[in-house]
Design a protein around this nucleic acid. Structure first.
Lengths: 132, 132
DNA sequence: CCTTGACCTTCCAATCGCTGGAAGCCCCAT
DNA sequence: ATGGGGCTTCCAGCGATTGGAAGGTCAAGG
């Protein structure tokens, strides 16, 4: 990982698509990259680390706004871990809520599908449920 | 539920927002409503039943495209329940996949949060994970 | 008859996190 | 100088809504 990378090189080094890097810059998630004389963006290994951090956080389902806060805390050596934990806990709660919602859908649908013969006849508990 | 309802009445009767009813019409999920001389949309009790069907299907997480198919099957008296079940099963599989994805996020994050002291000190396993 | 206010109409924009394409410039090798 | 790859910007779309602006319509009350 050399010092003055193009966006394509930074993309390969970080695992974040070049297009996505530009997008992250445009919304202010990452700072504006430096430029060469001809206008090409230039990235340092530090920039790549930030991109990796963002990518990992996205993998864990964090939204952009929270990732912004997490990056800020990450770079703040005097941070309190309680602040990080608070953000993570909020996200866990939201994940739990979403999981519960999807699970409820799944369970209802599974019951209906179990009760459905699934043959050439028109009788269908699934449609019966939907029309109620 | 009287015969010639305005969009607002149909919204109240079906539980589907007037704005959303117009949107559903615009994307072709529901047929174009009839109109009064002055251009107001007119809805019948049958239309309201379709809206209720759509609403219930959305509650179960079906996407618009699949709901379109389900409405078609619902109104087709010579349908095979196997076709309905196939659509439902596909949706269940997708729900399972999504739930597994979210659950994996949740579990990882929960472990990290458990390991985080959450006090005024800067050490934080959550950030440590994200930067790796 | 006129005003008020609730309702209706259309159209356009924003949400979230990307992803794709078009048009044009830059850089390097042949 | 020519080709091809990479870079630049801008614009548009995904899915399923939701919001607002600007204007027409309807029924009731003064």
């Amino acid at each position: 990982m050399k010092a003055g990378m193009t966006i394509g090189e930074a993309a390969r080094a970080s695992g974040v698509n070049a297009k996505l890097i530009r997008y992250y810059e445009s919304i202010g998630l990452i700072p504006e990259a430096g430029r060469t004389a001809s206008g090409y963006r230039v990235y340092s290994p530090t920039d790549v680390n930030v991109l990796r951090f963002v990518k990992r956080a996205r993998t864990l389902g964090f939204g952009i706004e929270r990732i912004q806060k997490l990056v800020g805390l990450w770079q703040d050596r005097s941070r309190c871990s309680s602040e990080v934990k608070r953000i993570a806990t909020q996200h866990i709660d939201e994940l739990d809520a979403k999981i519960a919602e999807l699970q409820a859908m799944r369970d209802t649908l599974h019951e209906l599908a179990e009760a459905c013969h699934g043959d050439e006849r028109p009788e269908c508990p699934i449609l019966k449920d939907l029309e109620s």
